[in-house]
C-alpha cells in the first residue's frame, strides 16, 4: 500500500502537485458579479465581465502550454497498517443435526420454470370454474383483469362473462408477472427450507396466500371479491403450488447439498463456505475504459 514504511532512500523524493492559483476564484467572482448586476446595476455586471476576462486569461495561462506544478517533498511518515483484531472467526458449522435433511435440493432458477408451469396449471381450474359457474371462460379472466379496466364501476355479471381484450391483456400481464415472481421466490427460499418442499410450497403457501387475499380482496378488487368463489380460488392456487413443486422436483438436483448447514443453504458467501481463489492478481482484471 504505502511504501513510506520501506526504509531508505525516498526521503529526498518530491511529488508534483498542481500549483495553487487564484484565477479560478477570480473567474467565479466575476461570474457571480455578472449575475448580481442583473439585480443591482449594470456597472456591477461590467465589473464582473472584467473579472471573468481576467480570470479566463489567467487560468488559460495556468494550463497552457504546460500545466503549472509545484514540487512537494515527501515527508517520511511511517504508517503501520495493523489491526488488534488479528483473528477472523468463521461461521461455525455443526454438521450433526443435519442428518434429517433431504439428500438433494434444487437450483434457484428452477423456481422460474416452476412458476411458469404453475401459472399454466392455474389456468385450468380457473377456466373450469368459469365454465361451470357462468358458462364463460372469460369470466375469471375479466375478474382478474377488471382491476385495471377503467370504466368498470359496477359491472353486471353478463358484462363480466363477455370478452374484453383490455381485460384479457391486463389479466395476462398480472397473471404471468405474479406467477414468475412467486416461482422465483419459491426457487430462492425452498432450498433454505428443504424438509417438505411440496407441502410447504404446494399446500401451505397457497393456503396462507389465499387467506391473506381473502381478508384484503374487498379493498384490492371489490368486483372480484363480490363474485369470487374462494374454494375454486384455493384449488387453483394449490394447482399452482403443486405443479410448480413437481416441475421443480423434476429439475436436476444439486447433489452436493447433502450435508450443508442452514447458512450454506441460504447461499451465504463467506470464507470457509466458498472456495478461495489461488491467486487473482490485478493483472488479470481488466477494467472497462
Amino acid at each position: 500500500m504505502t511504501t513510506e514504511s520501506q526504509p531508505g532512500d525516498r526521503q529526498t523524493a518530491t511529488i508534483q502537485m498542481p500549483a495553487p492559483t487564484a484565477w479560478p476564484i477570480i473567474l467565479a467572482f466575476g461570474c457571480t458579479l455578472a449575475a448580481a448586476g442583473l439585480v443591482t446595476s449594470a456597472g456591477i455586471s461590467i465589473l464582473g465581465g472584467v473579472f471573468m476576462l481576467a480570470g479566463s486569461i489567467g487560468w488559460f495561462r495556468q494550463v497552457l502550454p504546460h500545466e503549472q506544478h509545484e514540487e512537494i517533498s515527501v515527508a517520511v511518515q511511517p504508517v503501520a497498517i495493523a489491526s488488534a483484531r488479528a483473528l477472523v472467526d468463521r461461521i461455525r458449522l455443526s454438521p450433526e443435526h443435519r442428518a434429517r435433511l433431504p439428500v438433494e435440493t434444487y437450483p434457484v432458477v428452477s423456481g422460474i420454470k416452476g412458476g411458469i408451469a404453475g401459472g399454466i396449471a392455474m389456468i385450468g381450474p380457473a377456466l373450469l370454474y368459469g365454465l361451470i359457474a357462468q358458462h364463460s371462460i372469460w369470466y375469471p379472466v375479466n375478474l382478474l383483469g377488471g382491476a385495471g379496466v377503467a370504466h368498470w364501476q359496477n359491472p353486471t355479471t353478463a358484462e363480466i362473462a363477455a370478452f374484453h381484450w383490455q381485460s384479457l391483456f391486463i389479466a395476462i400481464v398480472i397473471h404471468s408477472f405474479t406467477c414468475v415472481l412467486v416461482g422465483l421466490l419459491y426457487g430462492a427460499m425452498l432450498p433454505m427450507l428443504p424438509r417438505h418442499p411440496i407441502l410447504l410450497g404446494g399446500v401451505l403457501a397457497p393456503v396462507l396466500w389465499t387467506g391473506i387475499l381473502h381478508s384484503f380482496m374487498g379493498i384490492i378488487n371489490p368486483a372480484l371479491a363480490d363474485r369470487i368463489s374462494w374454494s375454486w380460488f384455493l384449488v387453483s392456487q394449490v394447482a399452482y403450488g403443486i405443479t410448480a413443486g413437481i416441475v421443480v422436483a423434476r429439475q436436476e438436483r444439486v447433489p452436493t447439498d447433502q450435508s450443508l448447514p442452514f447458512a450454506a443453504r441460504m447461499g451465504i458467501e463467506a470464507p470457509g463456505m466458498m472456495h478461495s481463489r489461488a491467486d487473482a492478481g490485478p493483472s488479470r482484471d481488466k477494467d472497462k475504459p
Binding site: 500500500m1 504505502t2 511504501t3 514504511s5 520501506q6 497498517i81 495493523a82 489491526s83 488488534a84
Partner: peptide
C-alpha cells in the same frame, strides 16, 4: 499483536 509487514506485492 505484532505489526504486519505492510506492503503488498506490486504486480
Amino acid at each position: 499483536m505484532s505489526a504486519i509487514q505492510n506492503s503488498i506485492p506490486i504486480f
